[in-house]
C-alpha cells in the first residue's frame, strides 16, 4: 500500500446550528462565530484508513477543499494519526457545487500521484448530498462503492466490501485503486491522544491554490457549477394546533373521535 487519501470536509458544528440565521437582503446564511469540526462520517473514514495502514503500511493523507481557516480542522485529523494534509484553497473554488468540488478534489488526488485507496464519508451533514464520493471517482475514472459498512483487504490488492442496501446488504470484491464512501457502522473512530495532538503540531499541511492545480475555471467555483441557487428561505411550520381539553377520559374520547373522523378506524 502506497497511499490512502481521506477526503475530509470541515463543517459547521451541528451543536451550534440553531445559531444560524439568514440575511434577508443577500439571501445568504450567516454562520459567523460557528466553529468548524470534521464532518462526523469523515472521522470514520480516517479510522478506516488508519486501520488499513496498520496492516498494510503506506501513508494516510487528508485532502480537503476549504478556506485557509480549515487548517485547524485538518490538524484535528492529523492528531488522530494521519501523516500529512493537503488543503485546496483558492477564491476561485468558492461556491462550488458537488461536481465542481469533485473536480477540485480530483485535481488534488492527481497532484498527490498514484493513490491506492480514496476514502470519503458517505454524506456530509451540512450539504447532505452524498454526491461527492461518486463524482470524484467518476472524474478520476476509478470504480467506487458507497454505503460501506465492512471491509477486508487482501494482500493481493483486492478488497471485499460489504455495503448496505434496502433491508439487507451486498458483498462486493474490487481491485485497488478504489474509492469508497463509508457509513458509521463501519467502525468506531479512535479518540485523539495527547501525544497525537503534540505530534500533529509538526505534521505538514500543504496548501495548494489553483496556480498549483491549474483546473480550468470553467468547471470550478460558482460559475463552473452546473447547479445554481434559485432561492432560499427559512422553513416555517404552521398548523391548527387545536388543544384538546378536559379530563383524561374526555381527551381520550375526543382523540378517538378525531381518529374516526379521519377514516382510520
Amino acid at each position: 500500500m502506497e497511499r490512502i487519501i481521506v477526503c475530509l470536509k470541515p463543517v459547521p458544528d451541528p451543536k451550534q446550528w440553531d445559531e444560524v440565521s439568514m440575511d434577508p437582503e443577500t439571501q445568504t446564511l450567516i454562520r459567523e462565530g460557528i466553529a468548524s469540526v470534521i464532518n462526523p462520517l469523515d472521522k470514520h473514514a480516517i479510522e478506516a484508513a488508519l486501520s488499513i495502514q496498520g496492516v498494510l503500511g503506506g501513508e494516510v493523507v487528508l485532502l480537503s477543499m476549504a478556506p485557509p481557516s480549515a487548517a485547524s480542522t485538518l490538524r484535528e485529523g492529523l492528531a488522530m494519526g494521519a501523516d500529512r494534509a493537503v488543503l485546496l484553497s483558492d477564491r476561485m473554488f468558492a461556491g462550488s457545487d458537488t461536481l465542481a468540488t469533485a473536480h477540485v478534489l480530483a485535481a488534488g488526488c492527481r497532484w498527490l500521484g498514484d493513490n491506492d485507496l480514496i476514502i470519503c464519508g458517505n454524506m456530509s451533514i451540512d450539504g447532505s448530498t452524498a454526491q461527492v464520493g461518486s463524482q470524484l471517482a467518476e472524474l478520476l475514472d476509478l470504480p467506487n462503492i458507497m454505503h460501506v459498512i465492512d471491509l477486508d483487504l487482501g494482500e493481493d490488492g483486492s478488497m471485499v466490501v460489504t455495503r448496505k442496501i434496502e433491508h439487507g446488504f451486498a458483498r462486493l470484491r474490487g481491485a485497488l485503486p478504489l474509492v469508497i464512501s463509508v457509513r458509521k457502522e463501519l467502525n468506531k473512530p479512535r479518540y485523539t491522544s495527547f501525544t497525537g495532538i503534540l505530534a500533529a503540531e509538526s505534521k505538514e499541511i500543504k496548501v495548494l491554490s489553483n496556480e498549483d492545480l491549474k483546473i480550468s475555471p470553467e468547471v470550478i467555483g460558482i460559475d463552473g457549477s452546473p447547479t445554481k441557487m434559485a432561492g432560499i428561505e427559512l422553513r416555517r411550520f404552521e398548523r391548527a394546533r387545536e388543544k384538546l381539553d378536559g379530563s383524561v377520559d374526555e381527551i381520550v374520547e375526543s382523540l378517538a373521535g378525531r381518529i374516526y373522523q379521519y377514516g382510520i378506524i
Binding site: M22, D126, M229
Partner: peptide
C-alpha cells in the same frame, strides 16, 4: 438544507 431549517431552490 441545514438539517431542514432552510429550504433552498
Amino acid at each position: 438544507g441545514w438539517g431542514g431549517g432552510v429550504i433552498a431552490t
